[in-house]
Amino acid sequence: MIENRPLTTFVSHSVLIIGVTLIVFPIWIMFVAATHDALRLTQVPLPLLPGDQLWANLQTLFQGKEFGIPIHLSVFNSLIMALMISVGKISISVLAAFAIVYFDFRFRMFFFWMIFITLMLPVEVRILPTYEVVAHFNMLDSYWGLSIPLIASATATFMFRQTFLTIPDELMEASRIDGASPMRFFVDVVLPMSRTNIAALFVILFIYGWNQYLWPLLITTDPDMYTAVMSIKQMLESGESEPQWQLIMLTALIAMLPPVLVVVFMQKVFVKGLTDSEK
């Protein structure tokens, strides 16, 4: 701080606290709703403080009778999908970036541009033909179908390319003199030196994968393959009567917990990765 003005600092804090409260308020209400029973949630005004029905609601979700899939199974599906997408994206991108930065080969630039244009085609835009391709390969209702079409990523490839370009050339030469083959160099030097980037990218991609909605909605028809995030929509639409808000909110709470935990606990590396990669 340049000058010491207790009043301005106090005002700053107050405004920030109000602002942050507003931002977090919806999440608080979600938690509160998840702890009441159905009856309480039909009485206006709705509660602002938690009730005691959390455990009961949780049990209902674990049985999963009403919505096709028990919550722990949909969370498991989400986990598999998010891991396959994040690990898959990181693996194929890091290999491709290594080839493009460290090898001179025919069609290098052609491949580079081919990867580049995928940056421009979000899945929402080419959803229908992609669906047809996945159907053609019999990958509907499978983990492969959920993840593979989403794992080619130009962004990750670019980020790794950027990182590799900052590794001094001499390290590669020193490793050649030490007798390391290209893949040895990759494993022993390039990967360890990219640790931070890999971790940051993992956070971003895990959230990206976990939060996928339209894609799983389209390609899963078997309730056993539903993911936690997409099952929300099923719950909103199920039944003629008013939706079961206490269950919906609890599902939402559970479905947002893993990415929130990842982002909060890996905050430092995530913030660094996010602000670095986009620049």
Partner: peptide, 20 residues
Amino acid sequence: LEPKDRGIAMVFQNYALYPH
């Protein structure tokens, strides 16, 4: 021959030590 098969060792200007 590959560098490793030439029986040489090299010291670089920026030392090129593996930082990790």
